[in-house]
Design a protein around this nucleic acid. Structure first.
Lengths: 153, 153
DNA sequence: ACGATACTTGACTAAATAGGTCGGGATTCT
DNA sequence: AGAATCCCGACCTATTTAGTCAAGTATCGT
C-alpha cells in the first residue's frame, strides 16, 4: 500500500477541489502551482480521475475541474483503489482485486490470516474518511481563513 | 505496503524455520520444494536474511538454515521492514524511514494525518505478531500433525 | 585425502512500474 | 477570430522486481 507520487498528487488535487466545492471550477494550472505538482503530469492524473467519475471538467477559456459527486460521497479508499489497485498487502486477501496465491490451502494459511487483519485495518481507516472529512481536518488543523485558496494543503 | 513476491517468500521461509526450530537446520532445497519457491531466488533471500541477523547458516554436507533468535523475538514488522522498507504508506509518517515530503507544513497536512492513522493501524497489527505467533496460528488452523514438515504453510 | 553436498558471492538479465514530458487536437469564451 | 483551457496518445528514462547463473568455499563421511 505504498502510495505512489501519482497517488499523492491525486489526493492533493481532490482535496483542493473539495475545498473549492461550490465555486465553479478550478484550473489545472492553479492546482499545479499551489501544490507544486508538474502540470503535464497533473493533466494526466486529472484525466484519469475524470474517466473514473471522480471529477468533471469544463473546457475552454473559463474551464477547469470540479468534483463530480459530493465530497462526502468520495472515500479515500475509493480513490486509492482506483489509482493504485488493491489496498490489501497481498492479493489473496483483497476483496475488490482478489487473486489466488500459490499456497495449497488459503483457509489454513497463517500468513494470510495476518494479512487479512492488516487489510481490514487499512480499509477500516480509509473507508471511513471522505474528501469532506479531509476538508474538515484541514479547517481544524489550520485556523479559519477568508479565501479557500489560502488553505495550505 | 504491497508485499513483494520476495517478501512473501521470506515470510514463508521464516515460518518453516520457525516450525522446525529446535531440530538442527533445514536445507534451502527442502524449503524451496515444500513452499514451491525458485531455489536460486530463495538462496538470495536467505542470504539477505542472514546478513540481517534473522537466520544462521551451516555449510557443508549436513548444512542448512535455522533461526538466529527465538521465534518469539522476531516480529513480522521487523522482517517486512528489513525486506521492503517502510511500513507507512508515505515517507512523512514513517518512524523508521522518515522522509520529509513536499507539503509546506507537515503539522497542518490533513492527508498526512490520515496516513498517520493508516500507518499506526498497520504497525499495530504487524508489531503484535511474531514468528512464534505465526506458528501457533498454523497449529490452530490445522489439526496437530506428527512431523513438523507435514504442516502446510 | 577426497569427493559429494550445501551454502556464498557477485554479476547478469528481462519485464514491469514509476514518474514524467511532448505535440498537437478539440472546445469554449470574448 | 483568437486566446485560453482541457484532451489524448505517444514517448522517454530510471528504478524495481523477479529471477538466473557460474564459480567459489566450507564441511562431512569414508
Amino acid at each position: 500500500m505504498k502510495l505512489s507520487q501519482r497517488g499523492e498528487y491525486a489526493l492533493r488535487a481532490l482535496l483542493v477541489l473539495g475545498m473549492n466545492h461550490g465555486s465553479s471550477v478550478v484550473r489545472i494550472r492553479d492546482i499545479a502551482q499551489q501544490q507544486n505538482i508538474p502540470r503535464r503530469f497533473l493533466e494526466q492524473i486529472l484525466n484519469d480521475l475524470k474517466s473514473a467519475g471522480f471529477v468533471l471538467s469544463k473546457r475552454g477559456v473559463a474551464g477547469g475541474y470540479r468534483l463530480q459527486r459530493g465530497p462526502n460521497e468520495i472515500s479515500l479508499a475509493d480513490i486509492i483503489r482506483h489509482l493504485e489497485g488493491p489496498l490489501a498487502p497481498v492479493g489473496c486477501v483483497s476483496v475488490n482485486y482478489y487473486q489466488r496465491c500459490s499456497c495449497p490451502d488459503e483457509g489454513k494459511c497463517a500468513i494470510r490470516s495476518v494479512m487479512q487483519e492488516v487489510r481490514d485495518a487499512i480499509v477500516g481507516v480509509l473507508e471511513g474518511v471522505s474528501v469532506a472529512h479531509l476538508c474538515d481536518r484541514v479547517r481544524d488543523l489550520q485556523g479559519p481563513v477568508e479565501n479557500p485558496l489560502d488553505y495550505i494543503i
